[in-house]
Amino acid sequence: MGTSSITPGFDESALVARAKSGDMDAFSELVTHYERRVFRMAKQITQNDDDAEDVLQETFLKAYTHLDNFQGNSKFYTWLVRIAVNEALMKLRKRRSDKTVPLDEPINTGEDEMVREIAVWDENPEESYSREELGTVLNEAIQSLKPAYRTVFVLRDIEELSIEETAEALKLSISAVKSRLLRARLQLREKLTRQFKKKGDDAFAYL
């Protein structure tokens, strides 16, 4: 769901300040508050439960040991995301036999193949599919993206970081984030359209 950290009684900056001064309870509250989101994000990037669990553990351990480095210039969650993304990308690199760095992959900026499927969708996929079916479709779609696109999409559109925060977390330029996000969104749109298009509605598919 949304990524708002507005939870009654949850005061992030106060908890961070207390945690920085050595209050373990405060740090525990931060962990409890964010563990599911960090795991979900790690799972979406690595596409693997075991890797996501390792990322979860390492992220909070690093957050704890480097808490003094957190200056409060960004939101705590953005800082946490940056740690988790680095951990997740390291997992991806380890798993890839060719050891290429996913985020440094050359990006095809050609305009071809960006839009092929042009068809309206059935009214509402959330109503036509069970939660499990929909989850499977979405997971398969996101899994099919290159890590460079997937990571940007996850941070921007699922975790709802801003373009600037996404760029900061991934150490990318704003323009790189924007172009990757556009391709990620359009590629996902293609895949979901194949799944969700109104039956028999290829009327506009002449581009």
Binding site: V115, W121, R131, L138, L186, L192
Partner: peptide
């Protein structure tokens, strides 16, 4: 065509945003 692309891209983002957070 662009109307359809725009509409379905918006729906794509929305359906991902609406993904239920799974329990650990």
């Amino acid at each position: 065509n662009c109307w359809v692309v725009c509409d379905t891209t918006l729906k794509t983002i929305k359906v991902f945003k609406g993904m239920q957070s799974q329990p650990l």
